[in-house]
Design a protein around this nucleic acid. Structure first.
Length: 117
DNA sequence: ACCCTGACTTGGC
DNA sequence: GGCCAAGCCAGGG
């Protein structure tokens, strides 16, 4: 397995319940800013062989990207079961549910606005 | 090994 | 805001 694939798998596996990540975001974290489609491919093959929270991955518009209504509904249910609000159209509020590593860090690092930058 | 596809993204109308 | 075209590159036939 290629390193990129491993990183993608590791990142997806690390998405906490109740949160989501976009294909592009995952690709960027894995070291390939333009590799969103590779993430898709990896998700396809790996989710079958490994247990990955594939349902926590959505597209950059904040919507479920599944073409098949059947799988679409399944993903919607999975997310709602974790407390994520999903609209009928499959839209998720990224500002609220996106697993943003940097934002997570900010929550733990206190930055004094009066202390320079 | 070559060719095609894809659960995407971005940029231009 | 939406629609179209191109770029991306790992898997599968």
């Amino acid at each position: 397995m290629k390193p990129f694939t491993q990183r993608v798998v590791a990142i997806i596996a690390g998405i906490p319940p109740g949160q989501v990540m976009t294909y592009g975001q995952i690709a960027a974290l894995a070291g390939s800013p333009r590799g969103a489609r590779q993430v898709v491919r990896i998700l396809h093959s790996m989710s079958k062989k490994y247990k990955l929270p594939w349902h926590r991955v959505i597209n950059g518009k904040g919507k479920i990207a599944l073409p098949e209504e059947e799988s679409f509904t399944v993903q919607k249910m999975f997310l709602e079961a974790e407390g994520v609000a999903v609209s009928e159209a499959g839209e998720v509020d990224l500002a609220v549910y996106q697993y943003n590593v940097e934002r997570t860090l900010e929550e733990h690092v206190f930055v004094d606005p009066q202390d320079g930058e």
